[in-house]
Simulated scan of single mutants.
Amino acid sequence: MKNKDLEGKTVVITGASGGLGEYIAYKCAENKARLFLLARNEDRLNRVANRIREEHGIDCTVMALDVSDLRKIPSIFERIYEEVEAIDVLINNAGYGIFAEAEDLKLTDLERMFSINVLGLISCTKAVIPSMRKRQFGHIINIASQAGKLATPKSSAYAATKHAVLGFTNSLRMEMVRFGVYVTAVNPGPIRTEFFRYTDPEGAYLENLGRVVLEPEKVAEKIVQVIFTKKREINLPWWMNWTSILHTLMPNTVERLGRKAFFKK
């Protein structure tokens, strides 16, 4: 998989210490991008960065950042701008979720989901907007979810955060098109990553889904392929996206027919 336009470009990835973010980093490195990897766990970031340096000889910088700490985000991006003239691509990948019915949802979990999934994403985006507008160049990619299109039981709060991400992304796209900056939303279904170790500790959800679970490397390939293109959205898998479209057209029917499947979490 090649995206020649990435060579020599600066890419910032949040949540890059594992899961989808880690694979996006590897795919960008294959295309010779200059990488800044952000996440809470610096040891795990260094593991990813060392592999990239050894396999691709790519310049790769790690910076510890919890995107829920909104006060630290501006200083992190200031440090990046001290090292490079511009950020060409921002991939907002950091995410957090908990499966629980609304009655059982802890407010601390709710607060953390919105802090990471929404406020952290918006804050990171705001840090790159002025430069991208001035240069009239750049690409912002926000990792949302199919849950942002079709909410299901036990994911009310998580779905709410992803609805917010899609709303922000769609508005941002219209604002930034005037300056030649691309904005893409990525809406994957369940991906086989450590995300579900925290979201669903019992492991029943991925087990119930079986072979329909997405592999992170394949999703990362799709994302890297569309960098510096006008792609509005990436929706995976296709059939899950069609379910959300049908739900918009026939909500009662989809909820009735899909009730058993929706409760598999």
Rank of each mutant, 00 (worst) to 15 (best):
D5C: 11
D5S: 14
T10V: 15
I13P: 03
G18W: 05
Y23W: 09
A25K: 04
K32S: 06
K32T: 00
F36G: 05
L37K: 04
R40F: 09
D43W: 08
E54K: 15
H56G: 02
D59A: 09
T61F: 13
A64H: 02
V67H: 00
V67K: 00
D69Y: 11
D69P: 03
D69S: 14
D69T: 08
R71N: 12
S75H: 13
I76H: 09
F77A: 11
E78Y: 11
Y81F: 12
Y81N: 06
E85Y: 12
A86K: 15
D88H: 15
L90T: 01
I91P: 06
N92V: 02
N92A: 11
N92E: 04
Y96S: 01
I98N: 02
E101N: 14
K106W: 02
E111N: 12
M113D: 00
L119P: 04
L119I: 13
L121C: 11
I122M: 15
C124A: 12
P130V: 05
R135P: 02
G138M: 10
S145H: 07
Q146L: 15
Q146V: 09
A147P: 07
A147T: 01
G148V: 00
G148S: 02
T152I: 15
P153W: 05
K154A: 07
S155M: 15
S155R: 12
S155G: 13
S155W: 01
S155I: 07
A159G: 07
A160L: 05
A160W: 00
V165I: 03
L172E: 01
L172Q: 10
F179H: 14
Y182Q: 09
A185I: 09
V186Y: 01
V186C: 02
V186I: 05
P188Y: 05
F195S: 06
R197M: 10
Y198T: 13
T199E: 14
L206E: 08
E207H: 15
E207F: 12
L209T: 03
L214F: 03
L214Q: 01
L214Y: 02
E215I: 02
E217S: 12
K218A: 14
V219P: 03
V226H: 08
E233N: 08
E233G: 06
I234R: 10
P237W: 10
T243R: 11
T248R: 11
L249I: 08
M250S: 14
N252F: 08
N252D: 14
E255P: 01
G258V: 01
F262T: 00
F263S: 12
K265F: 15
